[in-house]
Design a protein around this nucleic acid. Structure first.
Lengths: 244, 244
DNA sequence: CGATTTGTTGACTAATATCAAACTGTGTGG
DNA sequence: CCACACAGTTTGATATTAGTCAACAAATCG
């Protein structure tokens, strides 16, 4: 499987592209690179001239405050282009960092721009991807502003479950995901100690089992109930291909 | 001044459009409507067939959680198109509500789509607008997740100052802005009582004076310092037209 | 001008942070 | 293969921030 196929699979999960579009995307030249965990891929203030497709592994976007605190903005899985916005926002306003060993496929901005100007349907599809990215940020704002810590954590894993299912990375109620409790805390806006206590409670209650490299949604209905999770904001096309 | 001119002014503050693009935008047919404060303009789940340009007044986007709590996602000022994402995300994942009497100019999706497919530069400009929208959400995540309540409030008003300055709506260090303390609390993810106490402290310290319809940034350097505000994430073109 | 919304205050409570120490697992070099 | 180093996790005690409730005051509106 070519590296870029994961992108086409991903796009098909939430947008409409036809065979010709897919073929045009598949023709995009890519530059593949493997990185270890904890590698900064793009940094705040840089002006990348390529977008980064995550082919394998996990990454996150994060901002550092003036007080030196890091806030993780989003987690990314295979098929995501976490810095697609750099196509029109020249300078990065945050960092992109791997949180596991990862395979990246870089696609030059110039090639993407040529493609979107030639094929409006691809432009619409990629624009839509960036809009879904924003929709996920909106839901994350709700999470941080309006839900307590256990609900936030439940919500995060319910979302990841859906997003990973879209690219075929879940088995039953479980999926591989590499994250430390400290990283989780940075995403949820809580302390690492508090994150640990919530994880333990979920584990003992048989709701959710979060490990260093693996997540099991032991009781999805409960996770959904305590977190108020509703996948509508992901704007995915349903299995049945229902209209969006 | 035609209603749509505020949009052109706004676009020029953070994107590059030429005279022909501006003329093409100015030719977009609009349907103008005045609404009182606290009016729901578009609701969650709806599938609007037009975008809404805010010509005058203020609005916010908000989500209601399953617990009935409302989280305000963003505030909007004249020149914003708060639901531009509906162009490609058919169903709304949040509400758009006026927070003051407001004038709205609705632009049919079909007209916008025709324009963006005919003029790539306009497509790029509008796409860029939605990306800046997302960049603001990212910063708001940092605010809610990594800063304490006073910093959040300072940050909100520092941002509004910049955004309103871009469309010429500030006088000195002051600007008109209509918001109740309860709404502020819903945006900041704190209780109304706590919001009130912070406002009073800022007022007594001569840092920031937030009133029902008016905001004065009495001491901008201090606001900036306590909130860690850095306008880079707004991706505005500087006054001097410096490159972005 | 009365009615309603918005803002203000105090007392009390709950959620979460901080700190510090100890423990566990995993990989590395001797 | 062991021992050590290190990163990650777990625990308890204590501190702080912010929430809730309830009453009242002040603005605002029809």
């Amino acid at each position: 499987m070519a590296h870029i196929d994961i992108l086409i699979r991903r796009l098909r999960s939430d947008t409409h592209i036809d065979a010709e579009d897919a073929a045009a995307i598949a023709r995009l030249p890519v530059h593949v690179r493997d990185v270890p965990a904890q590698t900064s891929i793009v940094r705040t203030g840089e002006r990348p001239n390529a977008c980064c497709l995550l082919v394998k592994g996990f990454a996150c976007r994060a901002k550092i405050t003036d007080m030196g605190k890091r806030q993780i903005l989003s987690f990314h899985v295979a098929g995501d282009i976490p810095d697609l916005q750099s196509l029109f926002l020249r300078s990065m306003d945050h960092d992109l960092v791997s949180i596991s060993p990862a395979t990246l496929a870089f696609i030059a901005h110039s090639d993407v721009l040529k493609l979107v100007d030639e094929r409006p349907s691809v432009a619409h599809a990629l624009w839509r991807e960036t809009l879904i990215d924003a929709a996920i940020f909106r839901e994350w704002i709700v999470n941080l502003g309006a839900r307590d810590a256990p609900a936030r954590m439940g919500h995060l894993f319910a979302e990841l479950y859906h997003r990973m299912a879209a690219v075929g990375l879940v088995q039953g109620n479980e999926f591989e995901f590499s994250v430390t409790q400290a990283e989780l805390a940075e995403a949820l806006g809580i302390s690492a100690v508090h994150a640990n206590r919530i994880i333990q409670r979920f584990r003992s209650e048989g709701v959710l089992d979060v490990r260093r490299n693996h997540v099991a949604l032991l009781d999805f209905p409960t996770v959904q109930a305590i977190s108020g999770f509703d996948p509508a904001y992901l704007h995915q096309l349903t299995r049945r291909g229902a209209p969006e």
